[in-house]
Amino acid sequence: EHKIILYENPNFTGKKMEIIDDDVPSFHAHGYQEKVSSVRVQSGTWVGYQYPGYRGLQYLLEKGDYKDSSDFGAPHPQVQSVRR
């Protein structure tokens, strides 16, 4: 199983989107239009992308907690697509 939770604010606060065993080419299409400032990967390895359609900067997200976007190497809290 692959499970990831994306949070609007640092330290796992604010609006969140939970994804289980699915690739998401556009967070906006899924109704999530917030920034991504923290991430909790509960299982599996994911790649987050700066822009929709798996474009832009890529961020490797392995199991663990990323309490701020800088923890996974993002210069800005901008992640708009993700895949396993």
Rank of each mutant, 00 (worst) to 15 (best):
E1M: 06
E1D: 02
E1C: 15
E1V: 02
H2C: 02
H2F: 12
H2V: 00
H2A: 05
H2R: 08
H2S: 13
H2I: 04
K3Q: 07
K3E: 08
K3N: 14
I4P: 00
I5K: 15
I5E: 08
I5Y: 15
L6V: 11
L6T: 05
L6G: 04
L6K: 02
Y7L: 00
Y7N: 02
Y7P: 02
Y7K: 06
E8F: 02
E8A: 11
N9Y: 05
N9C: 04
N9L: 09
N9S: 09
P10M: 04
P10C: 05
P10A: 07
P10E: 07
P10S: 07
P10N: 12
P10Y: 04
F12A: 11
F12G: 05
F12N: 08
F12W: 08
T13H: 05
T13R: 15
K15Y: 08
K15E: 05
K15N: 13
K15W: 02
K15P: 05
K15C: 04
K15I: 05
K16N: 00
K16F: 15
K16E: 07
K16M: 15
M17F: 08
M17R: 11
E18N: 04
E18L: 07
E18S: 09
E18T: 10
I19K: 06
I19H: 01
I19N: 14
I19R: 11
I19S: 10
I20N: 15
I20H: 10
I20D: 13
I20S: 13
I20L: 14
D21V: 00
D21R: 00
D21I: 04
D21T: 02
D21Q: 07
D22P: 01
D22F: 07
D22I: 07
D22G: 09
D23Q: 00
D23E: 02
D23Y: 03
V24T: 05
V24F: 03
V24A: 11
V24M: 12
V24G: 02
P25C: 11
P25V: 09
S26D: 15
S26V: 07
S26H: 11
S26K: 03
F27E: 05
H28I: 07
H28T: 13
H28E: 14
H28L: 14
A29N: 12
A29Y: 13
H30P: 10
G31W: 04
G31C: 04
G31N: 09
G31I: 15
Y32H: 12
Y32G: 13
Y32E: 12
Y32D: 13
Q33S: 10
Q33R: 12
Q33Y: 15
Q33P: 13
E34P: 09
K35P: 07
K35G: 13
K35V: 10
V36I: 15
V36E: 00
V36C: 14
V36M: 04
V36R: 01
S37H: 13
S37N: 06
S37Q: 12
S37V: 09
S37Y: 05
S37K: 08
S37F: 05
S38T: 04
S38H: 05
S38Q: 02
S38P: 01
V39D: 02
V39G: 02
V39Y: 05
V39N: 05
R40M: 05
R40L: 06
R40D: 04
R40G: 03
V41E: 03
V41L: 01
V41N: 00
Q42G: 11
Q42A: 13
Q42H: 06
Q42V: 15
Q42S: 13
S43K: 07
S43Y: 05
G44H: 01
G44T: 01
G44C: 01
T45W: 01
T45P: 02
T45L: 06
T45M: 06
T45I: 10
T45D: 09
T45S: 10
W46A: 01
W46Y: 01
W46S: 05
V47S: 03
V47P: 03
V47L: 09
V47I: 13
V47K: 03
V47Y: 11
Y49E: 00
Q50V: 00
Q50H: 07
Q50E: 08
Y51N: 13
P52N: 05
P52I: 02
P52C: 05
P52A: 08
P52S: 10
Y54R: 02
Y54N: 03
Y54T: 00
Y54I: 00
Y54V: 02
R55C: 07
R55H: 09
R55M: 12
L57G: 12
L57W: 09
Q58H: 06
Q58M: 09
Q58S: 14
Q58T: 14
Q58C: 09
Y59H: 00
Y59K: 05
Y59W: 08
Y59N: 04
Y59R: 03
L60K: 13
L60Q: 07
L60W: 03
L60G: 04
L60R: 07
L61M: 13
L61S: 02
L61A: 01
L61W: 07
L61E: 00
E62Y: 13
E62S: 07
E62F: 01
E62P: 08
K63V: 12
K63I: 12
K63Q: 11
K63C: 10
G64V: 00
G64A: 06
G64R: 04
G64P: 01
G64T: 00
D65F: 02
D65P: 01
Y66E: 01
Y66T: 04
Y66D: 00
K67H: 09
K67C: 07
K67Q: 11
D68L: 12
D68R: 12
D68E: 11
D68A: 13
S69I: 15
S69V: 13
S70V: 12
S70C: 11
S70W: 10
S70M: 08
S70P: 13
D71C: 09
D71W: 09
D71K: 15
A74P: 06
A74M: 06
H76G: 09
P77Y: 09
P77F: 14
P77D: 11
Q78M: 06
Q78T: 15
Q78L: 13
Q78K: 06
V79C: 03
V79K: 07
V79N: 02
V82I: 15
R84L: 09
